[in-house]
Design a protein around this nucleic acid. Structure first.
Lengths: 200, 200
DNA sequence: ACGGCAGGGTGACATTTGTCACCCGAGACC
DNA sequence: GGTCTCGGGTGACAAATGTCACCCTGCCGT
């Protein structure tokens, strides 16, 4: 019997997935969490065979969760279920120790199969997404990413410079380099391209 | 027996909701659609009692769907199920003729009740969201919204001016007015605030 | 009829962004 | 040891954005 913990902040989806997986004769949903911290507590306490988790949740993201499960040498395997078909996300998920990565536009019949695969020690990852993850490396340096992240929030160069202890000219240059790498004409385009590609 | 059509581009959620609603003895899921146009075709053909639909879908949004169902005097009632807790969205949904509006962080047990309410001719709307929808009117004019929408996509003032047959000075002024109304310091902040409030 | 208001529309000027040329240190390679 | 590349960092100048004052039309209330 595969013992499953569900972590998803949308309770409609969480409840529906709990119902769906409970219908499988070899699966039991033993817990549900509304956010990442609650999920971590329940992983420690219930020691499920598998954690099925969204990426974007309050408290801790699914990727951060996976990092902590690995760091604490817990036996639970982690299957990410997410909206984001972004190679950058998958790459970071794998680096965090995730054992599966399934998109929310996967047919619901395949979720149970993915759970079985991951519970059996295998990886369950969308093959096309996996291929894309390694063919398009992240072109941004850490500084460029940080500057872009703040620009995306609407911060002006002066503010970004103050926050990062840089001069405004430096910030301008980082933005310019990021724009060039991403083929963008301005910061708004650069931010959108980076986010859509999972590099932000 | 309540005959239901589901419209949701995430097949995982769509399949899980189909399973969940099918477990109710008084409900039958008679069709599923992956996008808005497919949903409209199936509403016309199958004439379900209720259409349960996401808002953001390829082809036609759930709100556009509701408008068309109403315009074609089809008997199907529309229940929106969405992520967006935004008064602006609810307002537009109601104007489009929607009969229910449920958030995806509603407990899954309540979805069936909402379906029954809507099928019975009543409205099923989150009360708090409804209150918020009418207390904060949309401060943007149509032109301001159009200019902001394009700015959000990364278009520069010159480009926006050309697209809307205006001069760049006019575009600058519309953006400035929108920024002032929203309390933003630049276009990026203005776009974020407007989107978060459902006015974009 | 008139005044006030809102929204549509514009350009001069101040401020910010983006371009470009530049410097420095660390690491890899020959 | 020398050269090259990369990422961190900077400012002068051109281009774009944001501020501000202004005009026009239509609608509404008096």
């Amino acid at each position: 019997m595969i013992r499953i913990l569900l972590a998803e902040d949308q309770s409609l989806l969480r409840g529906a997935l709990a119902t769906l997986l409970s219908l499988e004769s070899d699966m039991e949903v033993i817990g549900q969490a509304n956010d990442g911290l609650e999920a971590l507590d329940q992983v420690r306490e219930l020691k499920p065979d598998i954690l099925v988790s969204d990426i974007e949740m309050p408290g801790l993201s699914g990727i951060d969760l996976a990092s902590k499960v690995k760091a604490e040498k817990l036996e639970t395997r982690v299957l990410i279920v997410t909206t984001f078909s972004r190679p950058g996300y998958l790459k970071r998920a794998l680096e965090a120790g995730v054992n599966g990565y399934v998109l929310k536009d996967t047919p619901s019949e395949e979720l149970a199969d993915a759970v079985r695969q991951v519970a059996a020690g295998r990886m369950a990852i969308d093959a096309e997404l996996s291929r894309a993850a390694w063919s398009t490396p992240d072109p941004l340096s850490e500084r460029e990413r940080e500057v872009l992240r703040r620009a995306e929030l609407g911060e002006m160069n002066k503010q970004i410079a103050a926050a990062l202890n840089l001069s405004p000219g430096t910030v301008r240059n980082y933005l310019a380099e990021a724009m060039q790498k991403l083929g963008a004409s301005n910061r708004v385009e650069a931010c959108r391209i980076a986010r859509q590609s999972g590099w932000l």
